[in-house]
Amino acid sequence: MSTLEIRDLHVAVGDKEILRGVDLTVRSGQTHAIMGPNGSGKSTLAYAIAGHPKYTITSGEVLLDGEDLLGMTVDERARAGLFLAMQYPVEVPGVSVSNFLRSAITAVRGEAPKLREFAKELKSGMDALSIDPAFAQRNTNEGFSGGEKKRHEILQLELLKPKIAILDETDSGLDVDALRVVSEGINRFRAHEDTGVLLITHYTRILRYVTPDFVHVFAGGRVVEEGGPELAEKLEAEGYEAYTKASA
């Protein structure tokens, strides 16, 4: 049983305050969707929790099972059980997918997987996401299409088995087939692991495949409305206009 607690989180980029007091608790077994218009601070929330150096926490706290995440380095947060599937996965020249994943698994599990078991694990993970096995030898994310990058993020999710996964616009830029494959990966992960998911999205499309337990509407750097899956339906019908006006 794990819990991610975000309490009154304020985050700035340079002098500009982006998040203005976010409160949110995600427990294992739960899936929370954060929805909101562009520029509402959804991605800032994701990157600030993961520890990206561009974002400054001005006040508030983030706890993972009671431990202060904000006091940890980026890699310590990941090893504590946090995972961020990125909207724009980074290309790392000269570092093969296989080498990268083996280093990550070694770091997160605390010991190097046996070469043969790793190969098996990697192959079945790639098969499940319809990733061409040749990708294992390619440089990480280099020359990958948008869909390939997102599948690769979900592959990491399934291999690293975090306690809490934040998926930042994992659905953006995907065609219907890729969206289905990626959603199946997320659902497989949700079914097998006792994990909490924070799904950040602009669109309701992915929520037809990955059903959330809670929906939070983000506008102006804070949560402005909360509800169940039916809130997503309402947003689908009415859009964000009411919220953007209110926060402006």
Partner: peptide, 13 residues
């Protein structure tokens, strides 16, 4: 950004 991506997967600095 390269370091952030790798570290975000648990790989020490």
């Amino acid at each position: 950004e390269h370091l952030f991506y790798l570290q975000a997967r648990g790989i020490p600095h």
